[in-house]
Design a protein around this nucleic acid. Structure first.
Lengths: 140, 140
DNA sequence: TTAGAAACTAGAGCGAGGTCTAGATCAAGT
DNA sequence: ACTTGATCTAGACCTCGCTCTAGTTTCTAA
């Protein structure tokens, strides 16, 4: 998963935005919030230069955020990684918690999906028969 | 799904809160926002009396909200139902859109789940071997 | 009849997660 | 040298979806 690419060119914030799907605003915001593992390097002129490792980490953040991990947890994770080895148990706990959140969401979604599928079926059938008049009841 | 129960006692807002999992605040808020299909009945003293149909509709709302349907869509749906028969096609479209949102979410979640499962596996294995020192790289 | 719980309204407040603005600076092409 | 576009910082602002407050009124039970 980690892209070990020692002679990769560092990227500008705009390029990272493109690659991660985050806006440049969001990237600066994440940094301010302490969501990055290390400080982002800067050019002489003060511009950010992201390494491939930074981008890899951001891609993980995007994935976790996209599945509902709160920024606070992401921040905690970043802190743990920043502190180096020795806290893997807590990292594991964070991941595990999120895994359970994900399982729960999947169950919720699947349940709702089947309810909707049924309702869609009812509507579609009646629409096809052009007798929608009997469908007034929203709770069908 | 619809509870056809003509001689059911109307419920107070507190009872509805219990049954739907929404707070009484949220119930009043939903009403103000026009998320309910019809106006809620009131007692002589001005208190809300929810019918079973109201509760059924709210339970649907809870399900849809819980899977990410925005309040605006819920409101639109309520409006359509309020206007009675003749707009089933649009109702169907709303449901269909949401169904696709759900499918997409499930795919996202499942993808993330497998990534996490893998990472958890890596962490757990190394923790078990007590050689977590090599796990510094957060992007593993 | 009186206390206490529960409900009422209007409107302010809040937390999450960004987004946008202003005004300045930096870098690249012509 | 000059224009254009990308970045910079600090901080204000925004949307969503509730939540809470204040002050009042209505029930219910003792």
């Amino acid at each position: 998963m980690a892209t070990v690419d020692t002679d990769a060119e560092p990227l500008s914030i705009g390029e990272v935005a493109e690659r991660t799907g985050l806006s440049v605003h969001a990237l600066r915001f994440y940094e301010r919030e302490g969501l990055l593992v290390g400080p982002v390097q800067r050019t002489a002129g003060g511009r950010r230069r992201y390494t491939t490792a930074d981008v890899d980490w951001l891609l993980i953040c995007v994935k976790l955020r996209g599945t509902g991990m709160p920024l606070a947890d992401l921040k905690r994770f970043a802190e743990l990684v920043r502190h180096g080895p020795g806290n893997e148990a807590e990292r594991l706990r964070l991941l595990d918690t999120h895994q359970q959140r994900i399982e729960a969401q999947i169950r919720t979604l699947e349940e709702c999906r089947s309810v909707i599928a049924w309702k869609v079926g009812v509507y579609a059938e009646h629409l096809a028969r052009d007798d929608a008049g009997g469908l007034w009841d929203p709770t069908v």
